[in-house]
Design a protein around this nucleic acid. Structure first.
Lengths: 243, 243
DNA sequence: AGCCGATCTAACCGATCGGTCAGTCAATTG
DNA sequence: CAATTGACTGACCGATCGGTTAGATCGGCT
């Protein structure tokens, strides 16, 4: 879509509506699962009929495919930036995870994660599995790099990545926007946790209350910063958890 | 069922068959999801017809309910033992997690985890959510206890527990018995990782290759032991990952 | 032997859902 | 204004699935 278009063309409208369908579907897939979500439901919550959806997607499975395409694109975009901006294996990995989680939560209102893979058509599924494996291999490579350069504790990269991805993907099961935690705070806090798990020189303390972490609104940067773990800064003094 | 019964009574047979149905269903629910699993499928893979299943469960949702009951019983049994045998907050928590994972993998051939909660009938779901919340609160309490006694790094208990449960529940998505890792090794390695995340004095290195960890067969105890993290013992010397 | 309950099957029912299709409506275009 | 095109509706179809029912089979018990 053109930036800041005052008079959106038909194509713009089409794209906007398509994205709306995708968001609604992704949220429902995430919350109830693919098979438990009917197209009529999605359509109704968008104020149209089921048949209208077929203007934007070839079929139900096509919607799911688009969800995965979106998620995988986020994966690789995060990976690229993480590799570029991190200064060692750990920083690259952590930044990748942070960016990925951020996109997942922010952009698609809790995008479908790699849960309903089995619902894809065999060919699509094969393609996804290939891409996902490539992504996971890249993450493992970052772990190895970190072990090599001394930024990451010696460990089994495969297991550690499985563990971290589990934490990450689980977020969509319990995180609800508008709750006690802002997305920024959640991302920051989870990142801290991963950091401590991986780092060869773990920090002595994590945030005692996620809700006390700074949000993006309170910092100037629109981009999630990577803060040095050695000079870990907590904006407010720690106090006992209020939860 | 009576222990070591040579001539199982009808009730025994009933119970055995019921458990077989439960295992098969749990595996399928886990792998494909509740709604994507048909009763006819489960029946066929057990060599009976769909109607036969109704001798062991009132309906499909009843099977799912039984899965959750089993899982929650495992949760609380683990919790109880963890609380009893751990010597500080961290040990109690880690032991609980270890026992829980062990039961999940071993007993029920990768039991259904708390994923398909939304597929339950409203009343059953309410009951489950209540129980699960109670369990999670207990885990958070152990974290707080650990922070208090100095065994766990200061952190937000809620977030840390969410993170760990994510890793744990994700296991059922990728772990396949008969693969490169034995269940015992997986449990041990994941436990090590959690340990390092939580501990106020993290170890300097984790297992470099999960496949090198000792299995239960190679140790005398039939019960997962809790090894002191300070005196972390690896049966074989570490070597570079072969994966 | 004969009864009885438990087990299981085959056939069927009703509901839901994905997907299709003909046709309506509105906006755009020439 | 007329023609065209895209957006959308309402009705419908076929398939699948959960669940039911009637009856067949088998094993134990009096």
């Amino acid at each position: 879509m053109r930036e800041g278009a005052l008079f959106p063309t038909r194509e713009d409208v089409h794209g906007i509506k398509r994205l709306a369908v995708l968001r609604e579907a992704a949220a429902s897939f995430n919350h109830k699962g693919y098979h438990a979500t009917s197209l009529a439901e999605i359509a109704e919550s968008l104020g149209v009929t089921k048949a209208a959806l077929y203007h934007y997607f070839p079929n139900k499975n096509g919607v799911l495919r688009a969800c995965f395409d979106h998620a995988m694109a986020a994966c690789f975009a995060s990976l690229e930036r993480g590799r570029k901006e991190g200064r060692n294996g750990r920083e690259k990995l952590i930044l990748t995870l942070r960016l990925y989680l951020h996109q997942l939560i922010d952009e698609l209102n809790c995008c479908v994660v790699l849960m309903e893979e089995q619902a894809l058509e065999p060919e699509d599924r094969l393609k996804l599995v290939k891409e996902r494996d490539r992504f996971e291999r890249s993450l493992r490579a970052l772990v190895k790099e970190g072990i090599g350069d001394g930024s990451i504790v010696p460990c089994d990269p495969k297991l550690v990545i499985f563990s971290i991805l589990g934490s990450l993907n689980w977020v969509s099961k319990w995180f609800k926007p508008g709750g006690a935690w802002e997305p920024d705070q959640l991302v920051e806090a989870l990142t801290q946790t991963f950091e401590r798990t991986l780092s060869s020189s773990p920090v002595a303390a994590l945030a005692l209350s996620v809700g006390d972490l700074p949000t993006r609104a309170s910092s100037a940067s629109a981009v999630p910063r990577y803060e040095r773990p050695e000079a870990q800064s907590r904006k407010k003094p720690e106090r006992a958890s209020r939860r």
